[in-house]
Write a protein that binds this DNA or RNA. Structure first.
Lengths: 349, 349
DNA sequence: AGGCGAAATTAGAACGATTCAAATCCACTC
DNA sequence: GAGTGGATTTGAATCGTTCTAATTTCGCCT
């Protein structure tokens, strides 16, 4: 019997109230399952709601209650599987908590990020989860989001100083420890000439991973040649292009490389061919992220798994906790990463 | 001089109006750049907006104007790079049109999809872009979104019949033409014995691709041996397993294969080794999708690129056009796919 | 019949913007 | 100095919900 009119105006509380001879307030109470309303009235109203095909207008409700039921998620590069997984995790957790995700993608440009934040903030999200663009600055982000909306930062630090009254939460990966583990693993495979490949030193995550690598090398008493540090954009293409630089220095050529991330590692494996080497046979490679392709590549890639989907859920949970208690002291969580050994990290031949 | 109060209540039009001795209406006009307001008043108001750190409340505006500035995007599996790219494209196009993206992920479950749609619709999106879950049914989707919100379907048809009053737009891929092009390419490379490898015939996309292959073969006057059609689950593993079947028939062995998709093609290339052949040397292979790995594999894979990011922009554009003219007849766009020739489709040796 | 308290319902003012009609202002002209 | 007309400004209603304070209903007791 539920006939929906194929076409017509939007149905509001007033229509329902009029439709069954009761006040707007009562209908509102029914909608929110208040115990105040009488059983039989409730049934009558519910029937009418169904009959007219009512849909709740959450925006109006939020306006009146001065609440929000959305969270903005701003990702530096959604097309990267790592962040796509992260986004899926965020959306999952927010969804089950009854929040809706406002998506924004910055394409790793601070300028675009600023515009996106400005647009999203006008929709009044309860909070923001931000994976910053490479060159994003604290001051500008703060200007865009204002001081009323809590922020959870993921994956990267912002450039510059954040005023202390803005207490933002952080969820970071244990970059340093991960890179150290990867390096130690290569050392245990017999390698002595190990490069650090890819990424840009001005990004905090790159610096941390490089630091972990350096620590492991120092701890093992191994020297590092300057041409073993090759920077690149964190994409496969650029990494493949940059591979040659590893073998151009005057000193010893490396026999292994700790890569900034999986994309870069896959690109390096490709680039090695053009310099007469084959990853997993006569050159060892490790990545970072454990994207889906890592286990499927030839050779399969030794890397650090970061469980991006779980991180997404975690970031969402941090934000939800903050919404519940805005006054709680802000915190930083460093998520552990785990080494997954596959074929690409062959022993020294 | 722009001092933002680190903490305090949200600023509204009233605060600004009071702050510079002008009415709420005038401030509203300034905000929307109306030519009605005097230069000097405008300057004064704008200064005050900045001073108090005003942020526009779009929800309130939308309520009054009965408009919407958001679009819901529901994806069956966000973690899949193909859909992640698509989502990035959608968000890009919507963003530049001043819309915000409400994200939802259904995890390819019709049930979850229903819940997600129900939740999103309450936020009053102007329209919905839906990449349906595998088992999603027209009737249930319609019940969730109602008849007031335009829908663009992507990539898959819904099960069951859609009432004719719901005129939804569609954006699908040209499976048939793509497979035909791949086949024609192999023929032009000199191949005469060409197989169609992988996929299950009960899936509509497989049937369409297989039809394209058959057309090209017929048009070239080439006969097809029955053992040149090998089915498999569309995964690399199963494809590698099934490769042998190509060479087991009594008739001529194929020298090339059109594969259902890239995953299957990569699996086949792996499986060929075990039957004494090498893809890109003495056996030609094509894929479908142009996943990231296609260009990185050894040999690199000739395939059909679906440009998922461009599809995303296109879907968004279709929806925006529909919002501009709700009465326009609904349409279906079959997006072209493009052949990318790489190493795997070698000439007949 | 009158009174009382609990249960159920409702009127009406918010929330923060937009919009229309009406009110003001301000040179100028005659 | 009244009249005119264009340029500005504004009061008040409105969007669809929530919420407070009040009002109505009703069963039951004396």
């Amino acid at each position: 019997m539920e006939s929906q009119t194929p076409v017509g105006r939007k149905i509001t509380l007033n229509d329902i109230a009029a439709g069954c001879g009761v006040s707007r307030a009562t209908v509102s109470l029914v909608l929110r399952g208040s115990p105040l309303v009488n059983k039989v009235t409730r049934a009558r109203v519910e029937e009418e709601l169904r009959r007219q095909g009512y849909v709740y207008n959450r925006a109006a409700a939020n306006l009146r209650r001065r609440t929000s039921s959305s969270v903005a998620l701003v990702i530096n590069e959604l097309a990267n599987p790592f962040f796509a997984e992260f986004a899926a995790g965020v959306d999952d957790a927010l969804g089950t908590a009854g929040f809706v995700t406002l998506l924004g993608s910055s394409g790793d440009s601070a300028e675009r990020e600023h515009a996106v934040l400005g647009s999203l903030i006008e929709h009044g999200p309860g909070g923001i989860i931000l994976s910053p663009a490479e060159d994003s600055e604290a001051r500008k982000v703060l200007a865009a989001v204002g001081t009323h909306t809590p922020v959870v930062l993921f994956n990267r630090e912002l450039g510059g100083e954040l005023p202390e009254y803005a207490h933002w939460d952080r969820l970071m990966l244990d970059n340093e420890r991960g890179a150290r583990q990867a390096t130690e693993h290569l050392i245990s495979q017999g390698h002595r000439h190990i490069a650090f490949f890819g990424g840009h030193d001005h990004a905090s995550s790159t610096r941390e991973r490089h630091a972990g690598y350096t620590q492991a090398m120092n701890a093992a008493g191994l020297a590092i040649e300057s041409h073993w540090r090759v920077q690149s954009t964190p994409t496969r293409m650029d990494a493949a292009r940059a591979a040659g630089a590893l073998f151009e220095g005057s000193g010893a050529a490396p026999t292994a490389a700790v890569c900034y991330n999986d994309a870069v590692a896959l690109g390096l494996m490709l680039g090695l061919h053009q310099h007469g080497r084959q990853a997993g046979r006569d050159f060892a490679v490790t990545g970072f992220d454990d994207i889906a392709e890592a286990s499927m590549s030839m050779p399969s890639l030794t890397t650090l798994t970061t469980a991006p989907r779980a991180r997404g859920r975690q970031a969402a949970d941090m934000l939800l906790a903050r919404l519940r208690d805005p006054q709680a002291p802000s915190g930083t969580i460093i998520a552990p990463v785990e080494l997954v050994v596959r074929e690409s990290s062959c022993p020294l031949s």
